[in-house]
Design a protein around this nucleic acid. Structure first.
Lengths: 225, 225
DNA sequence: CATAAAATAGGGTCCACTACCCATAGGCTC
DNA sequence: GAGCCTATGGGTAGTGGACCCTATTTTATG
């Protein structure tokens, strides 16, 4: 009997292991890969073409929702189960709109995840019981949902070079010194800076600092002294 | 052979199961209880008197840190390992101050948790490698752990007004908006700003941000999504 | 190979911030 | 009252960065 191939996406390695042990309790499932952020998720799924993906909704770089969108756009036969701490309607609707077939709360027992896996692999939709009630009435009422839900995630991803520049910018170096340090023209640094700000939708240094801290590009602890 | 009794505290049931499967890989450990928030943790530990507790730092009702404080105050022989996503020094110091003997990042592999369990049960202290470096130098530098390394001498003390301004500046508000918000002239804001920078010896916004974070005037964690 | 993306570099304009002067009003202590 | 600090304003000048372009070289990718 052919086993279903599964990829696990969660930014916490220790939780990936937990998910793995839960999922391997079902002999029909075979874990063939893992990913720790959205980009990795898309890439891994593209490479391994699993039948099922468990996707943490909150991941760095690229959110689980975005990754789900890209995956279902490219490989629509892939079944995706979103794992989330949120039972809020907007999250669930976003997940379903993105193409997820299952939505399981992290508060739930592991059994539910196995139930969900079975359901979505049979082609069904699985919504965790606390969220199911929220949705069904809403779902039939609105065939088309287009709530942008105020995305503040970066629309475009930063390149490695841009992240390098961002680190130096946030350290407080003026463009002149960054240029010297990297043997670049000051103008080039300014251009990178402008590109970073455009991509992030932030328009001042403070915005860059906040983004860099929030995404772990810099560590404020190294400042605390 | 007597097995060590373990209680698992995490607000996500699905992750508790993961932790359970990780911990039961060590035959010397026996999971005797679980808790899903801080109060439950304190109560469960009081009732079951385990040898070891794994404590999620972020739990509803009562944080893992607070629960740790109460447990070690009441049952000091209880070994506690903090599980956290944060590698920030302040969190680690808080955890150690609260009485935790181990600090493991959720990003780490399950093996680390088992290592940590073994270490703290042998009476040692276990710090995850990415956090250990942050701490040790700080530790030897400070005779007393309770000093959060706060005083890094501003040459002159800031006035209350200046701290208020500093908060707004670091939030990213331009002088114009600060002036509007406080019903001041833009010029006054600029003067305050200049005075703050002179007193702190910092000459740009980033310097102010670093000072504000280091002294706790603002909390970067509130920026992290 | 063709194409796109990234990295590099530059021109020019405009504005917020910065530095360094200054003054006044109100409060406090000695 | 004298002296000092704080909060409040002003002037003037310089600078860095934000934002608007164009353009070349390198690298990745189909």
């Amino acid at each position: 009997m052919e086993r279903y191939k599964v990829v696990i996406c969660d930014d916490h390695a220790i939780y990936r292991e937990g998910l793995k042990t839960v999922l391997t309790q079902d002999p029909a499932l075979e874990i063939i890969g893992e990913a720790s952020n959205g980009y990795e998720a898309v890439e891994t799924v593209r490479r391994l073409q699993p039948d099922l993906v468990t996707m943490d909704i909150a991941m760095p770089e690229l959110s689980g929702i975005e990754a789900t969108k890209q995956i279902t756009a490219e490989l629509p036969q892939t079944r995706i189960i979103i794992l989330s701490v949120h039972s809020r309607k907007t999250f669930i609707l976003e997940a379903l709109k993105a193409g997820a077939r299952g939505y399981v709360l992290k508060d739930s027992a592991g059994e539910k995840l196995l139930d969900a896996a079975g359901s979505v692999l049979r082609g069904e939709c699985y919504l965790d019981s606390p969220v199911a009630g929220h949705i069904v009435d809403e779902y039939v009422k609105l065939p088309e949902l287009s709530t942008p839900a105020k995305e503040q995630q970066p629309q475009e991803r930063l390149t490695d070079r841009e992240r390098q520049l961002l680190r130096l910018i946030v350290e407080g170096l003026p463009n002149r010194e960054i240029a010297d340090k990297l043997c670049l023209s000051q103008k080039t640094v300014e251009n990178h800076r402008a590109n970073i700000m455009r991509k992030l939708g932030r328009h001042d240094v403070i915005g860059l600092v906040k983004y860099a801290i929030a995404t772990g590009i810099v560590d404020p602890d190294s400042w605390s002294r």
